[in-house]
């Protein structure tokens, strides 16, 4: 029994469940701490004109009259049975909404991550090939710029310039899902992915640069040079390969942020992702929408983390053995 309880997989599972429960509690209480509820959000100032009975019956309708603990567990119980709640605003269940938004967010996150890696890693290799040289200065400068420019600025600027001067704005029309119109979908995803990817490139570049610099000084790199290995093979097969773990870690974390944190860019480019779903939920005080969506995001985050761990095993035979 002891040995089963100590199994890393089981421990991991318990940790995950506890984490998700913590997230649920946190979101639930934070939401309740925001002034107003769905009644005031729907009726605005007119809510004050309602009679006490009307108020009472509305509160009962939304289930707001029950004790908080009861509200929490009734929601959690529903979630566990697959009922994520209903959005009056959208006229759809949170399950349906999420089924639409999650693929969009995932697609955007994957594309942005690819962009971030395609910019960040080569830039880091360029920087590390001659530390403190001109290339390194250039790479660091681009990294700093990418880190410093807020993406709402970049997004708004890009959208303005492209639509105004190039008369190209694929995001002006309704959003097309990849399954409906892949070509239009990719066009609509292009700019948000570029902007998010640019922001992503900075931390990836910094992490990769320091990892590459560290690996470069290791003995086995000297061995490879001593064998007469060509520079490109040396940089990729020996140096980059050994620097992958920190890069994967950083990318995994950043990917997690993208799942819920792309709200601003989703808003600017009218991409109906999870971020917008949460935002709308908060504005409407649709508690179930926010709670359930955040829980979905957190679960996805956990899964991504798990995949990152699996990736370590693919990269490093020593992890596989352990």
């Amino acid at each position: 029994m002891r040995s089963i309880a100590r199994h890393p997989l089981l421990r991991r599972l318990v940790e995950t469940v506890l984490t998700l429960f913590g997230v649920a509690v946190l979101v639930f209480t934070t939401l309740r701490a925001i002034p107003g509820d769905e009644i005031t959000a729907t009726l605005g100032t007119e809510a004050a004109g309602l009679s006490a009975e009307q108020q009472e019956s509305l509160r009962a309708y939304y289930g707001l009259d029950k004790p908080l603990v009861l509200q929490f567990f009734s929601w959690l119980g529903n979630v566990l049975t697959g009922n994520l709640g209903f959005s009056r605003r959208a006229g759809a269940t949170v399950g349906e909404m999420t089924a639409n938004a999650l693929p969009v967010t995932m697609e955007l996150a994957v594309l942005a991550t690819i962009v971030g890696l395609l910019i960040g890693v080569p830039l880091a290799m360029l920087s590390a090939s001659r530390p403190n040289g001109v290339r390194d200065g250039f790479g660091q400068l681009v990294g700093l710029a990418a880190l410093s420019v807020p993406n709402f600025l970049l997004g708004a600027a890009l959208l303005t310039v492209i639509s105004r001067y190039a008369h190209y704005n694929p995001n002006a029309q309704g959003f097309a899902h990849f399954t409906q119109d892949p070509l239009l979908n990719l066009q609509q995803m292009l700019f948000p992915a570029l902007i998010l990817g640019f922001g992503l490139a900075a931390p990836i570049m910094r992490t990769a640069r320091s990892a590459l610099l560290e690996v470069q000084t290791q003995d086995f790199v000297r061995t490879a040079r001593g064998k007469g290995v060509a520079p490109w093979r040396l940089r990729v097969r020996h140096v980059l390969h050994n620097a992958l773990n920190p890069i994967v870690t950083m990318t995994g974390i950043q990917f997690g942020y993208l799942l819920g944190g792309a709200v601003v860019v989703e808003q600017i480019f009218s991409v109906p992702g999870l971020g917008r779903q949460v935002l709308a939920g908060i504005q409407q005080k649709e508690y179930a929408v926010v709670q359930s969506t955040v829980l979905v995001i957190a679960t996805t985050f956990v899964v991504v983390n798990l995949l990152t761990d699996l990736l370590y095993r693919v990269i490093d035979p020593r992890v596989r053995a352990a």
Binding site: Q218, D219, F220, R222, T223, A224, R237, H238, H241, N242, I315, D316, P317, R318
Partner: peptide, 8 residues
């Protein structure tokens, strides 16, 4: 111990 590439 350190002169061989650990991932190859």
């Amino acid at each position: 111990m350190t002169s061989l590439n650990p991932l190859m």
